[in-house]
């Protein structure tokens, strides 16, 4: 119980809590599926709805506008994504941007490709967007991009203004992601300039002012400051890459464990071992059976496929091995 906040006005409390978003969604869902949801009673329906929100199961298979509606929904979706596809990280497979998009669309049918592209740009430093990425690299970049989308969009606008030598004070905060493909096209034109980036301290100042407008929905100021202090000049995507690797930011979002623990899941391992044991008993059967079966061919080409019998060994050192792709 929050005993010190009773002075907060009721409407402010309600607005901060995002409860109204969930209440109206709950009612909308109820109306769309009246017959089904009311057979156990309306109260039970609301109890189930809010329990699922509480347990972060509520974003599964929902539309994009819903999964990005609140910070809790975003964190929940990131977590769901991680939990569903952790095994990809374990097997050490590298996937392309489009493959990650397919995975995301299995969880959220209308997940926009722009979001995935932006995450991929963070990992690949924007140049080679067709390259393959390890699961953990992509995951942390995706987390940053998805969770702080609006903030990062504004940072990009500021960055581009600084690059063009404009005063960043005239910046208009973009409200939708539609502007991004355009921004990306612009990037390519100015590639020569982008090599050096902008002055870190100027960018830091602008970002600090930007944070004031974003209330809480930005990465921690001290973290961003720390990153920007490391170099004199900075590029947008290398700045984002550094942010994506910050454990403080990861903890603040609270959806994912630290990188070292990302792939540890003893329960799932046991289950998989059982399944693998069954498969090896019946030699004729195909080892695919997962939701990503359709991607298999591409994966095979993409990475030297490890033999199932060597899987154990790969897992033990997999977490450190696959971080290399971005660090080079």
């Amino acid at each position: 119980m929050n005993r010190f906040n009773s002075s907060v006005p009721a409407d402010e409390y309600l607005a901060d809590s995002n409860v109204l978003v969930y209440l109206s969604d709950a009612v909308t869902q109820l109306l769309e599926h009246k017959e089904e949801y009311t057979q156990f009673g309306v109260i039970r329906y609301f109890a189930e709805y809010f329990s699922s929100v509480k347990n972060s199961n509520h974003v599964l298979f929902r539309e994009y506008n819903y999964i990005r509606a609140t910070a809790h929904n975003r964190a929940s979706f990131i977590r769901v994504f991680w939990r569903c596809y952790r095994q990809i990280g374990k097997s050490g497979d590298l996937l392309s941007m489009l493959e990650y998009r397919s995975l995301l669309q299995l969880l959220c049918p209308d997940f926009p490709v722009e979001m995935v592209q932006n995450a991929a740009r963070i990992v690949l430093m924007e140049d080679a967007i067709d390259c393959l990425m390890s699961f953990s690299d992509f995951l942390y970049a995706f987390q940053l991009q998805f969770y702080y989308q609006e903030f990062l969009d504004s940072v990009l606008v500021i960055y581009q203004d600084l690059l063009a030598g404009k005063s960043p004070n005239t910046v208009i905060v973009p409200t939708s992601i539609e502007q991004l493909p355009f921004a990306a096209a612009e990037d390519n034109e100015k590639e020569g300039q982008q090599q050096d980036g902008v002055d870190s301290s100027t960018l830091a100042e602008c970002i600090d002012a930007l944070c004031d407008r974003f209330k809480h929905s930005h990465p921690s100021r001290s973290c961003m400051k720390e990153v920007l202090e490391q170099t004199e000049k900075v590029c947008y995507y290398s700045f984002l890459m550094s942010l994506a690797k910050q454990e403080t930011i990861n903890q603040a979002i609270g959806a994912l464990p630290s990188k070292a623990e990302l792939l540890i899941d003893p329960e799932m391992d046991q289950e998989l071992d059982k399944i693998i044991a069954q498969i090896s008993v019946s030699p004729g059967s195909n080892s695919s059976g997962s939701a990503v079966g359709g991607l298999k061919e591409v994966q095979r080409k993409a990475s030297p496929r490890r033999n199932i019998h060597h899987r154990r060994k790969v897992e033990s050192d997999g977490s450190t091995e696959e971080t290399d792709s971005s660090e080079n």
Partner: peptide, 22 residues
């Protein structure tokens, strides 16, 4: 009820509230 209690975790509060009511 929720505004009255000013819970730190409003979603958890509502979940408990509806579960209890149900």
């Amino acid at each position: 009820k929720m505004v009255e209690a000013r819970s730190d975790d409003p979603i958890g509060f509502l979940a408990d509230h509806f579960c209890n009511l149900a």
